[in-house]
Design a protein around this nucleic acid. Structure first.
Length: 627
DNA sequence: CTAGGGTTAG
């Protein structure tokens, strides 16, 4: 490899003629086992070659293991290509390099190559490649390997079975998965966890739960898988409930559990519970590695406590690019554009390589802050300075940025000029800008482009119908709504939630399920009357046109965020901040009303919508009325 | 003399 073998006087004629070689060989093996990266291994490798051990299969095996740890496919391929007659061990190690780098199909291909070369698979390599088939959702290869395992009599092996369950489960073949699972001699917690995770991956929450309760000794991984899966399926409250139950059962959460629970808190905006989890981390000495650190920063910023997020970020011992990303996203979400850019600059100064996500975050911050020039500088630098491919979401940020400051025609030209095919999100954001800046001519042009797409989501349709409504073109607005219905695009129900005394209360449009509904609606009425004296006129144009005007007003005032705020007003102490999380974007009318409510009640109201935070204080919103 | 469970943030 390094050309050292060319000089015969450097290599002994026989492999172990050097009396020190045996000793050296053992040392090499030990040293390689300790290597975390190929960089650390390179000098040892050079030494190995000089010493004449370079064809030793055990040494080669350890070298390939190092490649696995540092995802060095190229280095591994070079080594492997030079081995003559690789055995099943070397194949296993080599394939593992592909799989741990995420190159599943290359791993699977190499396995079939091995079989063609008449090397018999063993009970180690079969589970390895089955795992790859599962991860790549390659059912076809998986079934072939299943057959081979049967012919070789390996199907009774516990690990083979585990991976068969995983393969079929991940591919959604639940009857096969269940059969593999049930045929296992004793159902163990690991196999159950695999089944549960697979159900949850496919949204089968009920089935996962049933299986979960059947596990007699649930360990923390099993609990974690269930908690995380619930959160991923939008069952945030159930996830947190299970977390409490886990502790009552005396099962100690690990780092992963903490990360999953923090993520659920972040999504829910459950600040109090998030804080509690944070104190739990400190109390039980759970290691704040960079993943836990990022999750904490993320939780605080998504719960609207950006100051706490920032001070935590400063105190972290382990920071990597994702930690920085979380902080940038946090500042952007909370409307602190300059701070976001400062973190970005610090990241660069600290010599960390930014990722595609870093740029989405920082460009998003520029867009929220209307920082056009800085935004374009950073956008340009992506390719020229950092060699990162600019993707559709980055172009989207730029369109957003131009749109926000009202440079609509430029935004349109930018889309036309971009060497990337615009999607409906990009057109949608321009459409939204046209509506806010009341450029209906361009708005309609964009609307027509969007209609041609056909594949628009419910948000796009609603935006479109709102533009028509604003133009007074009610017939077209109605047509869009009709099209929405006829194409079966589900309008996602808006849901707002508020955390009061460690409990999350959820409200839908016009919700009357809450036990304190009467007090809530009384408050709503009371505020409504006060608003009248504040010269407030509802913006009913955002409501579909097939209902009466007075009904429209009512439809607006029972928007979920108002119900949540009213509940906050009656259930929390005066002067405390009210924090509400909404699943959709805040509508224009609610935005103006909440501004007024913050003024009338002298409360700080923090609303997180689908895209960002609105910090309302004394009649003003941090978003500057553009979102 | 070589090796293998299930659950992590944006």
């Amino acid at each position: 490899m390094l050309g050292a073998t060319a000089s015969p006087h450097l290599s002994p004629p026989y492999l172990y003629s050097n009396p020190y070689s045996f000793q050296d060989r053992k040392q090499f093996l030990i040293k390689l086992q300790k290597c975390k990266s190929i960089k650390q291994a390179a000098p040892i490798h050079a030494h190995i070659i000089k010493n004449g051990n370079k064809n030793d299969p055990f040494i080669l095996f350890e070298l390939l293991r190092v490649c696995s740890r540092s995802c060095s496919i190229e280095y591994a391929s070079k080594i492997f290509r030079k081995t003559s007659n690789p055995n099943v061990f070397l194949y296993t190690a080599f394939i593992d390099v592909f799989i741990s780098s995420g190159a599943y199909s290359d791993g699977i291909r190499t396995y079939f190559q091995m079989v063609r070369d008449f090397i018999l698979p063993d009970n180690y390599i079969i589970p390895l490649v089955l795992k790859a088939c599962g991860s790549a959702l390659d059912l076809n290869s998986g079934e072939q390997i299943h057959c081979q395992a049967m012919k070789l009599g390996l199907c009774s092996d516990r690990f083979v079975r585990l991976k068969l369950v995983e393969l079929y489960g991940k591919c959604g073949e639940f009857s096969d998965a269940k059969r593999m699972f049930d045929e296992m001699p004793q159902r163990d917690v690991v196999a159950s966890t695999v089944m549960i995770s697979c159900y949850l991956d496919h949204g089968l929450v009920r089935k996962a739960m049933d299986e979960f309760w059947l596990v007699s000794t649930k360990d923390n991984v099993c609990w974690t898988a269930m908690i995380d899966g619930l959160a991923r399926n939008g069952e945030m409250n159930m996830a947190l409930e299970l977390f409490r139950e886990m502790q009552m059962e005396g099962v100690k959460p690990n780092e992963v559990t903490i990360v999953c629970v923090l993520s659920a808190c972040a999504q829910l905006g459950a600040l109090e519970l998030g804080k509690w989890v944070h104190s739990y981390v400190e109390k039980y000495n759970i290691e704040v590695n960079h993943i836990v650190g990022s999750a904490l920063v993320n939780m605080y910023s998504r719960c609207g406590d950006i100051d706490e997020a920032a001070s935590l970020f400063e105190d972290l011992e382990a920071r990597d690019v994702t930690t920085y990303n979380s902080m940038i996203v946090g500042y952007a979400l909370n409307g602190k554009s300059t701070e976001a850019i400062k973190i970005f600059q610090r990241l660069i100064r600290d010599g960390i390589k930014p990722t595609s996500i870093t740029f989405s975050a920082v460009l998003n911050a520029c867009s929220h802050g209307g920082l056009v020039d800085i935004g374009f500088d950073i956008f340009e630098s992506m390719k020229t300075e950092y060699g990162i491919e600019r993707r559709i979401e980055h172009y989207g940020c730029m369109v957003d940025l131009l749109g926000r400051v009202g440079r609509l025609q430029e935004a349109y030209d930018f889309i036309q000029r971009a060497n990337i095919a615009p999607d409906n999100i990009i057109w949608g954001s321009l459409l939204s800008a046209c509506r806010i800046h009341k450029n209906f001519e361009l708005g309609e042009r964009v609307a027509k482009i969007l209609m041609e797409y056909g594949a628009a989501d419910s948000g796009t349709y609603i935006l479109l119908s709102n533009v028509y409504a604003s133009l007074g073109k009610f017939k077209e607005a109605a047509q869009v709504r009709a099209k929405l219905r006829e194409e079966g695009v589900q309008k996602e129900p808006g849901c707002s939630s508020i955390e009061v005394k460690n409990e999350i209360h959820e409200f839908l449009l016009g919700d009357i399920r809450h036990p304190e509904r009467e007090a809530i609606y009384n408050k709503l009425k009371e505020l409504d009357d006060m608003l009248k004296s504040e010269d407030y006129a509802p913006e009913t144009d955002v409501i579909s046109q097939d209902i009466e005007e007075h009904e429209k007003k009512w439809a607006l005032s029972i928007h979920s965020e108002r119900l949540a705020i009213c509940y906050g007003l009656i259930s929390t102490k005066p002067c405390t901040t009210i924090r509400v999380v909404k699943s959709l974007r805040v509508c224009n009318d609610c935005h103006s009303v909440i501004k007024l409510i913050s003024k009338i009640t002298q409360r700080r109201i923090v609303v997180r919508d689908r895209n960002r935070f609105h910090h309302f204080e004394n009649g003003v919103c941090s978003c500057g009325d553009y979102w």
